[in-house]
Design a protein around this nucleic acid. Sequence first.
DNA 1: GGCATTTTGAAACATTTAGTTCGAAACTCC
DNA 2: GGAGTTTCGAACTAAATGTTTCAAAATGCC
Lengths: 210, 210
Amino acid sequence: MFQNAARPRGRPRRFDEAEALEKATQVYWSKGYDGATIDDLVAGMGVGRPSLYSVFGDKRTLFLRVLRAYAERKGALAAKALLSPQSLRDSVASFLRHAVESATEEGSAPGCLLACVAPLVNDAEVRQFVRNAADSAVALVERRFRDGISAGDIPSDFPVAARASQTLDLVRGLTMRAQMGAPRKTLLEDAEAAADLVLLPRGGNAAPEP
Amino acid sequence: MFQNAARPRGRPRRFDEAEALEKATQVYWSKGYDGATIDDLVAGMGVGRPSLYSVFGDKRTLFLRVLRAYAERKGALAAKALLSPQSLRDSVASFLRHAVESATEEGSAPGCLLACVAPLVNDAEVRQFVRNAADSAVALVERRFRDGISAGDIPSDFPVAARASQTLDLVRGLTMRAQMGAPRKTLLEDAEAAADLVLLPRGGNAAPEP
DNA sequence: GGCATTTTGAAACATTTAGTTCGAAACTCC
DNA sequence: GGAGTTTCGAACTAAATGTTTCAAAATGCC
C-alpha cells in the first residue's frame, strides 16, 4: 500500500541508498579521500561493510558515485541561484552568495567537495570529472553574461569569457577561505563585493548608468 | 679547508638536510599529506628511514617543517614579485604571474602546497599556519595598494581591503586551475586580465587616466 | 690503532587498512 | 510452513603503514 514498486524478494535493506550516499559525502568531505577510511565510511553511512561493497563498490567507485551525486545536486542549486534573479547583478551576487552559503553550511564540513577535496585525488577519472564540472560552471556564467548583454544590463563589449572565468576564480577563492575557517559573514560581504567587481565596466571607459 | 664549521664527530650524513626537505616538499605536494607514505618520503628524499625519524621527527613534524620552509621560500619570492616593479599595475601583474608560474612549474606538481594541500590536512597547527600565511599575503597586497595610492597610481578612495582579498581569491582560483591541469599559457593570460580587473576604478565613476 | 660518537641499512613491530567470507536473519512467493 | 532470495553482522585475511630496534659502518680524537 505504501510502495507502488513491487518489493524486492529477499531481506529488505536497512538503509536508504541515497541517504547513505549523502552521509558518505560528508565523510569524504570532512576527511578527504585518503583520510577517509572504510571504517569511517561504514560508521558514517550506517551501512555494514559487506553492504557497502556490494551496493557501492570499492572506495574509489563509491567516491565517484558520491562526487557525481554531489555535483548534480550542487550544480543544480548553483544554476538556480544564477538563473533565477532578474537583473544580472542579482544573478551574479546570488551565485556567489550561494557558493559561500554552501561552503559555510553548518552540519557539513567547510569548503567544497568538488573544489577542495576532489582535485587532490590522484585519479584520472576524478580529475577529468572535476575539469568537466569546472568547464560547465564557467559556460553557465558565460551564458548568463551573454543574456545580460541582450537584456542591456551590461555593454556589448563586456569581456564575457574573461569575467566568467574570473567569477569562478573568485568563487574558488571564497570557497577555500571558507574551508580555512573564514566566517560566513565576512565571506558573504566579500561575495557582494566580488559581484560588483566582475560586473565593472572595462577600464578607461566611463561606467554607463542605464 | 672546505668547511669552516668543525665537522661533527660521528659518521657523516649521506644527505643534505635542506635538499632532503626540498625533496620531501615535492612528495607531499604531489601526493598530499595522507597520500604520501613514509616509503614515498624515504624513496623521494634519498634518506634512510631511521635518519628520517631522527633528523626530521615523525610524518606530521616533517610536514610542518616542509610547510614552514616552503612558505618562507615562496613567500619571499611572491613578495619580491609584488614589490620589485615600479608601477602598481606591473606589481600586481607580476604577483599574479609569479603565482601562476610557480603553480605550473615543470618538475613540481601543479598547484601549491600551501594553497591546495595544506588546507586539507586535518591538524590544528597546520590550519593555523595556513591561516596566518593567508593573512600575511593579503596584508602584503594591501600595503602595496596603499603605496600605490601614495604614488598616485590609484585614487585615494580605492577599496584597498576588498581588492586585496579579491586579488588573493583570484590567485587561489588560478592556482587551483593550475592544479586541475590548466595550461600555463591560459593562466598567464588570465593573470594579466586579473591584474586589470582588481585595479579597475570603482563602478559608476569614470576611470582617471593619470 | 683503539675508543667514543654518529649515521646507516635491513629487518622487525604493532597497528591500521581495504576488501572478503560465511552463517544467520529477514523477507517474498508458493 | 517451506523453498528461494537477498541482506546483515562479525570475524577473518592479506597487505600496507607509521615507527622502532640493532648491529655494522664511517668518522674524529687520542
